[in-house]
Write a protein that binds this DNA or RNA. Structure first.
Length: 262
DNA sequence: ATGGTTGACGATCAA
């Protein structure tokens, strides 16, 4: 079968229930991974999603911040979660499809404003989160697995609107990129999006603060789809649904898609 | 160098 999958930082699943439904109706991925749900699990508006055929969900949530959910029209089994850096944050959840494929949904900390852990604890938290990911994947050696989410890092020069102007800006600093590369290599993860779309500028996030986000186009590719090589070899159809950034009362992130032969 | 916007929650804090 072919699995179609999308990942989207929704920035409040309750406020944007209608946009999630619009995406499910118009694009119809088999699986949709959401980050920044900003909701306890029992307050996620699942009824409308189920009515559209998405009757399966695994999620972790907390009041006000963070929160990750995997919506699916295919049966899912809860495959657990990891409490990165021991803070009790709802930043990871995993699900298993009936064929054994594992999907990890991750929301890496944004990291605050200053790219220096000696003066900014949030930046230290982000680096520690990435180090724990590296060590976990080194031990785990995942196979038949997909990892998606808002990784809050744009690793390549063509993942940002200006490599030079963002070198000291959190999300594109060399130390963050090195930590992300280490975590990716430790798990043997393939960047499916860039394997599919190797050339050219590609973004999935545009700040709310720009007065005309599309014309200015000062974007960053913060949202990623990775897979282990056994699944990456059958991956395709990668794209960013840029239109969604222009929907009414949008998230500041656009959904990223890929498909997999399972 | 600064400010610009959004969401949850109810004070600001996080992004």
């Amino acid at each position: 079968m072919t699995l179609t999958l999308a990942t989207w930082n929704i920035n409040s699943v309750r406020l944007r229930e209608d946009l999630v439904q619009k995406l499910l109706r118009e694009e119809g991925p088999d699986v949709l991974c959401l980050q920044e749900c900003k909701s306890p699990v029992d307050k996620i508006p699942t009824e409308g999603f189920a009515a559209l055929g998405y009757s399966h969900m695994v999620a972790r949530g907390q009041k006000g911040y963070n929160g990750v959910a995997i919506l699916s029209r295919l049966p899912l089994e809860d495959a657990g979660h990891r409490d990165f850096v021991g803070k009790g944050d709802a930043r990871h959840v995993a699900a298993r499809l009936e064929d054994g494929t594992v999907i990890h949904n991750v929301y890496i900390p944004a990291g605050g404003d200053v790219a220096d852990r000696t003066v900014n604890d949030k930046f230290g938290h982000k680096l520690d989160f990435l180090t724990e990911m590296r060590d976990w994947f080194m031990a785990e050696r995942p196979t038949r697995s997909i990892l998606v989410g808002d990784l809050n890092i744009a690793p390549r020069e063509d993942d940002v609107w200006s490599h030079k102007q963002l070198l000291k800006v959190v999300s594109h600093t060399p130390i963050e990129v090195a930590h992300l590369d280490d975590a990716q290599q430790a798990g043997g993860w393939v960047d499916v999006t860039r394997a599919d779309i190797p050339d050219g500028q590609l973004y999935s996030w545009w700040s709310y603060r720009a007065k005309d986000w599309s014309a200015a186009d000062k974007g960053r590719r913060l949202d990623h789809i990775w897979a282990t090589p056994d699944l990456a070899s059958g991956a395709g159809d990668s794209r960013v649904l840029r239109d969604a950034r222009g929907w009414d009362r949008p998230s500041d992130h656009a959904p990223v898609f890929a498909s997999f032969d399972l």
